[in-house]
């Protein structure tokens, strides 16, 4: 949780290729604790919003089946060098992780 998010956006023509790595445990709620035998409560990012210069380009709802420390790659047409890409996420406990980068 502490590290947050790594995000990088590279320009290919007029398309920004965005790659991001989020630091999150993505606990499914289906796993059992080996010691106590009790289910470990679900804890996963369930909402993701990506913006280009403040305008929403991608909205996502996620289930717990997205891998631990999620990777997300997407492409945005019409981007220019220097444009700002931001990703904001919220998990099922209301905790937020966000990252921002400049298209290069």
């Amino acid at each position: 949780m502490a590290e947050g998010m790594k995000i990088r956006a590279t320009l290919q023509g007029d398309v920004a290729d965005v790659k991001s790595l989020m630091n999150h445990i993505m606990e499914t709620g289906l796993r059992k604790d080996a010691k106590t035998g009790k289910l470990i409560p679900a804890h996963f990012i369930n909402q993701v919003v990506a913006t280009l210069n403040g305008k929403t380009v991608l909205e996502a709802h996620w289930g717990a089946a997205v891998s631990k420390n999620p990777f997300l790659g997407f492409k945005v047409k019409g981007a220019k060098a220097g444009d700002k890409i931001a990703i904001n996420t919220v998990d099922n406990n209301g905790e937020k992780i966000s990252g921002e980068t400049t298209v290069a």
């Binding site: 280009l52 929403t56 380009v57 991608l58 909205e59 996502a60 492409k75 945005v76």
Partner: peptide, 8 residues
């Protein structure tokens, strides 16, 4: 995922 505003 929902795409908008130029997302490929």
């Amino acid at each position: 995922f929902t795409l908008s505003n130029g997302a490929e």
